[in-house]
Simulated assay, not measured.
Amino acid sequence: MNAPLRMPVAAAAGLTIRGIGKSFRTQVLDGVDLDVAPGEILALTGPSGAGKTTLCRILAGLERPDHGTLRLGEGDLAAIPAGRRHVAFLFESYALYPHLTVRQNALSPLLAPNVRADLATANRRVDEVLELLEIRQLDARLPGALSGGQKQRAALARTLVQQPALFLLDEPISHLDAKLRHKLRGEIRRRLAGQPAPAIWATPDGMEALSVGDRVAVIDGGRIEQVGTPEEIWLNPVSTRVARLLGDPPMNLVPGTLVEEAGARCFARRELRLPLPAPLAHAAGLSMSGDVVLGVRPDAVTVVPADMPGALGAEIYSNEPFGKHAILTLDLGGLLVKAKTTMAAAGALGEGGGIGRPVGLALPAEGLILFDGPTGRALPVA
């Protein structure tokens, strides 16, 4: 059994973030509100420069917010000095001690004066984590003798050996090869889920966020766009900003307008006319400007013969095979649309992937989303 480590706050404390703002000449964070329950993993995702790292540094006490409050349980986190917050922070830059070996780096937080784990317990915990991260054989090396991926795992080991009040993981697996990244994604999630501390896992990879988070928070331009379960975020993105960040590849976003034809409300783009199913037609009626963006996921786009009735005319722009599936890029009247299909279907398009070949596109009645053009916000469906 691992010896319990002393913490400055209760182990089962939840994290509450309210109105956090921060500027470095320009606004980096703007009124961020988040809650992370005890033992919960919140995946924080957004593009580069969205404010993920700045928020983590504020929580760790390395930056001071311009305004807002931070609470861990009943305590004011902002009132606790950085060295006493007992936050396990994996830095994106690794921040390894260059004069210490991999083992010594991993041991360092367990031997700190405010933790005081006995050496035998600390070494057992380090052995376990180094084995998990597949760097046990590197424990005597200095950081200067490690590759980028090995340095990231050494920094990750230093984080995971701890039993802190709060976990902060800033892009913890971004520099690992694909095979190891897939393995460790689940292993790290399992280890974090077994501890009572709340955890924030920051990543620019929307698919990674969906796979590791109990809930997902999407941040863009320093503001929280949406918070929800992975299923809620995937099925119902609240804005085009969220839709662009999620998916492999992301959702197709087609700008157009609304028109009435033969008593039916249609989505129109140039010569394209797409009758809207009843729920979307209701949502379309809520768009005041008439300018909308139609969202459709690549795996919902079906490639059919060019002469199929009701199909949208397109031309194959590129064909990328990925083993079990293929990504087709289709030229729809000057607009490039992605379709995710089977390898067999992609292979049947002909020599050279069928590039330049005319095809038809069938879009589903279900699974389409309408966004208001001027605001980019999703229009509510009845």
Rank of each mutant, 00 (worst) to 15 (best):
A10V: 09
G19M: 02
F24P: 09
Q27N: 10
L29V: 11
V32D: 04
I41M: 13
K52S: 13
R64K: 15
G73V: 08
A82G: 09
R84I: 04
R85W: 05
R85E: 00
F89H: 13
L90W: 05
A95S: 12
Y97S: 03
V102N: 00
V102T: 00
V102S: 01
A117R: 10
D118E: 14
T121V: 07
R124C: 01
R124D: 13
V126S: 04
V126G: 04
E128D: 15
I135R: 05
A140D: 14
P143V: 10
A157W: 09
L160R: 05
V161D: 08
L166M: 05
H182N: 12
P196K: 05
M207D: 14
D220S: 15
G222T: 09
T240L: 00
R244H: 04
P250A: 11
P250H: 02
F267Q: 02
E271F: 02
R273L: 08
L274G: 05
A281T: 12
H282G: 03
V292L: 10
A300S: 13
V303C: 00
M308D: 13
P309C: 13
I316L: 11
I327K: 04
K338N: 15
A344W: 06
G353I: 06
G353T: 09
L370M: 07
P374K: 11
R377T: 12
